[in-house]
């Protein structure tokens, strides 16, 4: 009995570590996708204002996203063939 649990616990530890690692990877992928599609742009914008222009009140998320997409109106990014 004792021997059995003794043998299982490093295995459990390894499984736990693997699980943590997998979760971290999934989290990283989630972060990466959001960064690439620009979902985190608003947070970056707010962080930028707080750091460099603390006196300026940031736009609301709704206004920010609206302004961002409307900027594409004047500057559509080209997509390649």
């Amino acid at each position: 009995m004792n021997e059995k649990t003794g043998a299982a616990s490093p295995g459990l530890q390894r499984a736990g570590a693997a699980l943590r690692h997998t979760l971290r990877m999934i989290g990283w992928i989630g972060w990466y996708v959001k960064e690439v599609v620009g979902e985190n742009d608003y947070q970056h914008y707010v962080a930028h204002l707080r750091k460099h222009h603390p006196e300026v009140e940031p736009m609301s998320r709704r206004d920010f996203e609206r302004a961002k997409i409307d900027r594409m109106e004047a500057d559509p990014k080209s997509r390649c063939c």
Binding site: G30, V37, G38, E39, Y42, E65, I69
Partner: peptide, 9 residues
Amino acid sequence: RYLRPGRVS
């Protein structure tokens, strides 16, 4: 635009 702005993913 109207429901959840910016939630692209």
